[in-house]
Amino acid sequence: MTAINPVEILLVEDNPQDVELTLRAFKKANLTNYIHVARDGAEALEFIFCEGPHAGRKIQNGPKVILLDLKLPKVDGLEVLQRIKRDPRTQMIPVVVLTSSKEQRDVVESYKLGTNSYIVKPVKFEQFIEAVQQLGLYWTLLNNPPTGGG
């Protein structure tokens, strides 16, 4: 069996259609990085901080970038962002905020909390690439060494 892939991208999104469209956009662009999807804020936090079902994971194994929707069930996106940026173990992880609109409140608030970039949905692959390029992550994501082995 192949070993568990180190998680490259965490997509935090509750809307299944948005999840599907985003994953499709990545797939079509042949982005091969392993993507983990969290469906609400609580699940995202468990994953990031290796708690609950993810207790076996190591916090230093990524993800390399987090795509974070703001409007989430249970724990909302801004709070998730705050928790990531407050914790020294995770504050270096780049967070790209996904917003439905250019409503200034979200944008201003998320920059205040330390987001690194944002994308207005629908997430098109080109937009994502632009955002990760801004973050200097482009080559990290694309020049991924082959997975497997371990």
Binding site: Q17, L21, L70, K71, S101, R105, K121, P122
Partner: peptide, 28 residues
């Protein structure tokens, strides 16, 4: 009013994204 606008901008747009996005997916 602000809450309403916020909700319009988020909730009303997500079904639209699905309509547009999956139409595009079918076309492609």
């Amino acid at each position: 009013l602000e809450a309403f606008s916020y909700s319009v901008s988020h909730d009303l747009r997500s079904p639209l994204r699905a309509v547009d996005g999956f139409s595009q997916a079918v076309l492609e």
